[in-house]
Design a protein around this nucleic acid. Sequence first.
DNA 1: GTGGTCTAGACCACG
DNA 2: GTGGTCTAGACCACC
Lengths: 135, 135, 135, 135
Amino acid sequence: MFIELDLQSEVPIYKQLADQLIEGIASGKLSSGQPLPSVRTLAADLGINLHTVNKAYQALKQEGFLEIHRKQGVIVQPGSLPSADEAFRERLRRDLRPLAAESAARGMSEDELQELLLSLYRQIQNPSSQGGTSP
Amino acid sequence: MFIELDLQSEVPIYKQLADQLIEGIASGKLSSGQPLPSVRTLAADLGINLHTVNKAYQALKQEGFLEIHRKQGVIVQPGSLPSADEAFRERLRRDLRPLAAESAARGMSEDELQELLLSLYRQIQNPSSQGGTSP
Amino acid sequence: MFIELDLQSEVPIYKQLADQLIEGIASGKLSSGQPLPSVRTLAADLGINLHTVNKAYQALKQEGFLEIHRKQGVIVQPGSLPSADEAFRERLRRDLRPLAAESAARGMSEDELQELLLSLYRQIQNPSSQGGTSP
Amino acid sequence: MFIELDLQSEVPIYKQLADQLIEGIASGKLSSGQPLPSVRTLAADLGINLHTVNKAYQALKQEGFLEIHRKQGVIVQPGSLPSADEAFRERLRRDLRPLAAESAARGMSEDELQELLLSLYRQIQNPSSQGGTSP
DNA sequence: GTGGTCTAGACCACG
DNA sequence: GTGGTCTAGACCACC
C-alpha cells in the first residue's frame, strides 16, 4: 500500500488513514470495486492496531466510500461514489473558513491561496507528476 | 464582541474563539494595537470558562497575532502581523489536502472548489456585504 | 427459483435465503409437500456456498417448515405448518419492540405504522399484485 | 437507570442498550435535553465495558437521537428528534418484512399481527400502564 | 480466512 | 471530571 502515517502527528491515525484512502480514490490509485487489504493485514503492514484500521474503514463505509462484506472483505464502493451534495459543501465551507481567514490575516492574496489549492488538487488527481521519474 | 460560539460543535471552543479573532483581524474589525477584553470579561460575556479564553489568547500570542501585557492587557499585534511564511504554507497544505482530496473524490471540479474558497475569502474580508445593513 | 439475494447486505445470506423460503410458503408459491432443489443445485443456481444453503435448510427444518430426507431430498412440510404459538409470539414481540419504539420516537403514529405493516402483509400473501402482469 | 441487559442474548449488548434508550425517548422517560450518565458511570452501573456504552452512544449520536459534548457529557437531542423519513421507512419495511412473512406462514391473521404491534406501541408510549401499580 | 463484538487498561485534550 | 483515541487480546458468526 501507499499509505504513510505519522504516528507523532496530532491528527488521529485513523483519520490519516481514512484521508489517504480517500486520496487514493480521488487519484484513481484505488478504483471502483477494488479490494482493500483486510483489517488484520493492513494493521500488520502499517504497524498499528487492527481496531484503528477498522475505525477508518467503518468511517469510510459510513460515508459511502467503501463496502464491507463478510467474506469478500473490504472493497471500494463499486456503484457511484458519494456526491458533493449540500451537506458536504456545508462541511467543506466550515472547514475551509478558518484556513481562508488565517491566510487573509497573514496577507496572502486571493490568487496565492487559490493557486496553492489548485496545485494540491492537481497533484492529488495526478500523483505521478509529483516527485516521480516520468519524462 | 462579535464572537459567536457553537457549544454543540465538535470543534473545541478555544479554537472557535481563536478562529473568530483571526477572522476579526482579517476583516479589519480588529485593527493593529486595538485592545481586547480581559480574559475574565470575555469569559463572562461568552459564558465560558476562564481557561478556555486564556488558551485561545495564548495560542494567538504564540502565533504572533496578539500581545499580552500584565497591565495593559491584551492587544492586537501593534507591529507587523505574522506573514504567510513557508511554515504556514506547509501547515496550510497539510490541512487543505484532505479537503481537496475528498472534493475530488466526490466529483467536485477544480473550478467549483476554487469558487467556493474564493467566495469564503471575500466574505471574510468584507463581512458587511453578508447579511449586513449596507445599502 | 424466485430467490433474490443481496450479497452486499449486512443481513447474513443464509438468513435472506431462509426468509425468502418462508415468504414463498406464506405466499403459496411453495406448497405443502413440494420438493425443493438440492443443496448442491440451489447453491449452484444462486452462486453461493453449499454450507450457506445447508444452514438455511437446517434452520427451516429445525423450525418445522421443511423436511429433509436422505433420498427424497428436501420438501416443504407436508403435514401442518408450524403454528403461531406463544414461543413465536414472544420472539415476534422481542423483534418488533425496537422497531415500534424507534417509529414512535421518530413521531410515526400508530396508524401509519399499522398501515405499513398491513401493506407488507398483503403484499406477501398476494405477490402477483405487486409489479406483476395481472390485469 | 431503567436499562436491563441480557448478556446471554444473541443481540449485541450495545444494540440492546441503544434500543432501550430509544424506547426511553419514545416513552418520555427521557426527554429533550436531559443529561444521560457518562460512559464510565453507565458502564459501571450496568457492569459492562465503557467502550460498549460508548458504541451505543455514538450510534445514537450518529442517528441524531443524542448529542455528545465535551464537558457536559451526553444529552438527549434538545432540538427536534429525527423524523420518520423515507430512509427510515425503507429500513423499517426491510426489517418488518420477514416478521410479517413468518407470521403469515404460521397462520397468524392480519388482525392478530396488527393487534400485537399496536399493543407493543401503546405499551412503549405509556409504560406505567404495564405491570405498574397505577389505579 | 473475514469482519463483529466485547473486554481491559492506558494516555491525552478539553473545560 | 468528560469523551477521544490507541493498544492488546479474546471469542464468535459467517462463508
